[in-house]
C-alpha cells in the first residue's frame, strides 16, 4: 500500500455573459455640488466585487480620485435596470454601462470647467487628483470641486450621466447552431499535483499553478480573491461535493454542512496564479471577468492528475475514495503513469 503522486493539467476558455446577448445593463451617475460622484446601479454584489469594480471604472473614466466616487446598489427606485449578476457578465456589461455614464458626466464636467477657464472643453484634461487643466498648461487649472459648484450654482448645469450597454440579441440557426455569440473570451490553464492513497482511495491536492488571461485585471486584489476562492471551489467540486452521491439515485442526500462535504480551512493547497491581460476589444478597459471560470480547469486537472498517479480514470464527479478504490481494484492495483516534468 502506498501513496502515489500524480500531475494533471487542463486548459479552458470562458465566454463572458449571456452568450446570445440581449442582456442590457444601465448606470446613472450624478455629482454633489462639491464634485463628489454617486453611481446608482441595480447590479448585485454577492461577494464578487461589483461595487468596487464599478467604482474604479467610474473614477478612471471621470478622471477623479477613487475616493470621490461611491457606488450605490441595489435599489430599484434609484438604480436603473440591469439583467443581474450571473454568467460573469457584471464586469463586462455593467463596466461598459458605467463607462458610458461616466463619459457623459465627464463631458458636462469639462464643459463647465471650460466655461470657467474660458477655453475650449476639448483642450482640457483631468489629472486624476481632483483637478482639470489645459493640456500642456497645468497652471491654467480649476478643481473638480470648484467646477461642480460653478456648474450647480452659476451655470445651471447637471453634472450627470446615463449609460447603457447592450449586445443585441442574436438569432440562432436551428439546424447548424450558427449564432453571434459572446464577444469576449477569457482563458486559463492549470496544473494540479495530487497524491492518491491506494489503500483508502483518498486524493489530496498538494499544489496548483495556473495562468489566467482576463483581458484586464481591473482590481488585482479582487482577481486574486476570485481565483483563489474559485480554485478552492474547484477542488471541492472535483473531490467532495454533491447532493446526490449515487446520482441518478436521489437517496443519501445531505441536509447540512456536516453531511455536505467541502474542504475545510486545513484542506487548502498552495496555489500560484499568473495573470495575462489581452484586452477584450469590447471590454471595459479591456476587462473580461474571472468570476465563473475560476473553478473550471481545476476539475479536469485533478481528474487527470489522479489518472497520472494511479492509472484510474474517474469520469463521474465527484472523485470519491470509493470510485478511486473501485478503479484501482478493477485495474488489479495502482498503475502509476509516467511522471510529468517537475511533478515529482
Amino acid at each position: 500500500m502506498a501513496r502515489h503522486r500524480g500531475r494533471g493539467m487542463a486548459s479552458v476558455n470562458y465566454p463572458i455573459g449571456m452568450n446570445l446577448g440581449g442582456d442590457p445593463s444601465q448606470a446613472l451617475i450624478h455629482s454633489n455640488p462639491d464634485g463628489k460622484f454617486t453611481v446608482a446601479l441595480s447590479a448585485i454584489d454577492l461577494g464578487q466585487g461589483m461595487k468596487q469594480v464599478t467604482r474604479q471604472v467610474a473614477a478612471e473614466t471621470l478622471g477623479v480620485p477613487m475616493e470621490d466616487v461611491y457606488v450605490d446598489t441595489a435599489d430599484s427606485d434609484t438604480g436603473p435596470h440591469d439583467m443581474g449578476s450571473f454568467a460573469s457578465r457584471g464586469t463586462h456589461r455593467m463596466g461598459n454601462a458605467v463607462i458610458a455614464a461616466a463619459r457623459e458626466a465627464r463631458g458636462v464636467l469639462l464643459e463647465a470647467a471650460a466655461e470657467e477657464l474660458e477655453v475650449n472643453a476639448g483642450d482640457l484634461v483631468t489629472d486624476g487628483r481632483g483637478n482639470i487643466h489645459v493640456k500642456g498648461a497645468p497652471s491654467r487649472s480649476i478643481t473638480v470641486k470648484a467646477t461642480a459648484q460653478a456648474a450647480q450654482f452659476k451655470q445651471g448645469k447637471t453634472i450627470a450621466g446615463r449609460g447603457i450597454f447592450l449586445i443585441p440579441l442574436s438569432t440562432v440557426d436551428p439546424q447548424t447552431g450558427e449564432l453571434n455569440p459572446n464577444t469576449a473570451f477569457a482563458h486559463a490553464c492549470l496544473v494540479a499535483d495530487v497524491e492518491v492513497d491506494d489503500e483508502t482511495g483518498e486524493v489530496t491536492v498538494l499544489k496548483m499553478a495556473s495562468a489566467y488571461e482576463l483581458g484586464r485585471a481591473i482590481n488585482p486584489k479582487m482577481v486574486e480573491q476570485q481565483l483563489v476562492g474559485g480554485a478552492w471551489m474547484g477542488i471541492s467540486h472535483a473531490l467532495y461535493e454533491t447532493p446526490e452521491p449515487y446520482y441518478p439515485d436521489p437517496s443519501h442526500g445531505p441536509r447540512d454542512f456536516n453531511e455536505y462535504l467541502m474542504p475545510g480551512p486545513g484542506d487548502t493547497a498552495p496555489y500560484s496564479v499568473t495573470i495575462l491581460e489581452r484586452p477584450a476589444p469590447d471590454g471595459p478597459f479591456g476587462g473580461k471577468g474571472p468570476g465563473e471560470m475560476c473553478a473550471n480547469p481545476v476539475l479536469p486537472a485533478i481528474a487527470n492528475a489522479v489518472y497520472n498517479a494511479v492509472g484510474v480514470r474517474v469520469n463521474d464527479l465527484p472523485i470519491t475514495p470509493e470510485k478511486v478504490l473501485r478503479g484501482i481494484k478493477a485495474n488489479g492495483g495502482a498503475r502509476p503513469q509516467p511522471r510529468r516534468g517537475g511533478g515529482g
Binding site: 461598459n96 463631458g107 449609460g163 449586445i167 453571434n180
Partner: peptide
C-alpha cells in the same frame, strides 16, 4: 446584428 450599443454623449 451584433454591434454592441453603448449610449452616452461624447466627451473629452
Amino acid at each position: 446584428t451584433k454591434q454592441p450599443i453603448m449610449e452616452g454623449s461624447a466627451e473629452a
